[in-house]
Design a binder for these strands. Sequence first.
DNA 1: CTGAAAGCGCTTACAG
DNA 2: CTGAAAGCGCTTACAG
Lengths: 345, 345
Amino acid sequence: MTIKGKATSLDIAHLAGVSQPTVSRALRGSPMVNEETRRRVLAIAEQLNYKVDKNASSLRRQHSGTLALLLFEDPTSDESHINPFFLPMLGSITRACARHGQDLLISFQQLSHDWHADYGDSNKADGLILLGYGDYLAYQGKLRKLVEQGTLFVRWGAVLPDQPGISIGCDNVGGGRLAGAHLTELGKTRVAFLGDASSHYPEFHDRYQGCDEVLREAGHALDPALQIDAESSEDSGYAAAQALLGRGIAFDALFAASDLIAIGAMRALSERGLRIPEDVAVIGFDDIPAARIATPTLTTVFQDTTLAGELLVDTLMKQVRGEAAESMRLPTSLVVRKSTLLCSS
Amino acid sequence: MTIKGKATSLDIAHLAGVSQPTVSRALRGSPMVNEETRRRVLAIAEQLNYKVDKNASSLRRQHSGTLALLLFEDPTSDESHINPFFLPMLGSITRACARHGQDLLISFQQLSHDWHADYGDSNKADGLILLGYGDYLAYQGKLRKLVEQGTLFVRWGAVLPDQPGISIGCDNVGGGRLAGAHLTELGKTRVAFLGDASSHYPEFHDRYQGCDEVLREAGHALDPALQIDAESSEDSGYAAAQALLGRGIAFDALFAASDLIAIGAMRALSERGLRIPEDVAVIGFDDIPAARIATPTLTTVFQDTTLAGELLVDTLMKQVRGEAAESMRLPTSLVVRKSTLLCSS
DNA sequence: CTGAAAGCGCTTACAG
DNA sequence: CTGAAAGCGCTTACAG
């Protein structure tokens, strides 16, 4: 018997001398099938290189075994630049999906577009993973809509009290405190902050807050005149540092809301002839691979992206299975490198 | 009329007072449907937030509108490290898929695993995009199997004469020539090569060949004693450079088979007190973002990953539509930075 | 333990 | 231009 095209469960049924439903049961390991029948079916399936048709199966079962990852691009950034911070997260997410037996759809979206309608409703995916920074206030309405529609999702980002849906994020305030405490120990008192610290960017805002808290406790709060808006890119960090220098206000340390900002800023500082860390100590946030390559190597607040990816998937799968799930805040830690390594200390 | 759960085309049919097939036709823009009927159907569909069920549609049409991206991980490298070279390619591929109206499944695989069986047969994807370097000879058998099965695919990698299936790759020989010519112009005559130059790694092999060709023409061929195996990672590059230094053979330039290798090697050279480029000029390959961050900034051979991603998708889609498609070799260009910028030149 | 039947939600000949 | 019918390949009650 030759089979044209792909083998179906019916083909196997014929060859095994059983009904098609029995093939289906045997294949999915149902306990109500004779052990010998199962073996026979499995052998034939293997030989025919049979694979269950995903579409038919998903249609019948009314769920897809697929998760969708939506990665938001910064609309202002150059097309080809994805925040490298998300790369290991992406790796971790794909691996976690594989462990859960889920396929992963991936899509890049502009935060402003109509992504919120597309995935859940077409049954392409059972749940959504939302990744990427952006203007949170603009974002929030869409999250609310997802909740209304009954679309399951988790997002990576700041965990806020009144938030629609479930979020996994790092402890940004805690991370900011680590940075502030480290700079204080170094004897730095005039700390500048590079990054949008408004409520539109809650992650950056919390990092600012945390750092400010500690500095305040030490008696020298962050001077708002030393805060410059920047988004997470090298160019933006470079420009922000130049703007900062242009203000002509003295500072002896720089806390950047992300490593990319920090790396851009270090370039601007070096070009001005400032020594790092002697004149200005610099701390970033994220611990992307480039932090180890930069000159000087960059002290930064580490976020565990591997763990984050796993938790995103685990949490989403809980929801898919109808179990309770909740938002989580992950701890951060400080990685000290040469950009804050003073010889005197 | 309230509809429990998701709206189906039948729900719309009832509301619009037409048959369900007519709804289907109207939605997919069939020309054989009355303009007024179409408008009515579309309005209702929009109002109900209706989306065509992907599974049902794919099942019926016997293709999925989905492409699968298999990214091969280097088994020897640390879990969380994906070659950053592939990041912009990934971005470009997802965008190209969107333009073609295709969904993109993503999966990380070990080159050694049974990925070749899974995707095509289960109708999850209409075609495969294969990304990632690895031992080509081990790989080749699986490619042949894909061809036999009739699975459609394109891969990123060296374009070789006797190769199963279609490949898109850069002109590695040409890239090697650019590097060799540049070093020759600088007056360098003792060029070392870091990277596996065997036929197991055709990309690296071709880069070696191209460089060697030009040097030969200039009268000072690559000395095989100055070639050290390395795979594309910083640590491997660091170790290879140390091994090279350990050989005690003089060299005045270093061509690394990838930027990651080059960056690791520069670290080893600096630690030995060698000046770059005065003592040793260094050239990498790929032009990853880190090349601009390294100290000194790294001269390298640029591969157009954005174009590559687009061509991979375009070529695969041609195959899906049953059109002719063929392998392509993309041009490279040299990006000169400080690691080869001699004051004298 | 197994089979006959129904149905998931579409698309596409086939009639009219 | 539209509708009735069939069928894509599964899974899952329902009988036996």
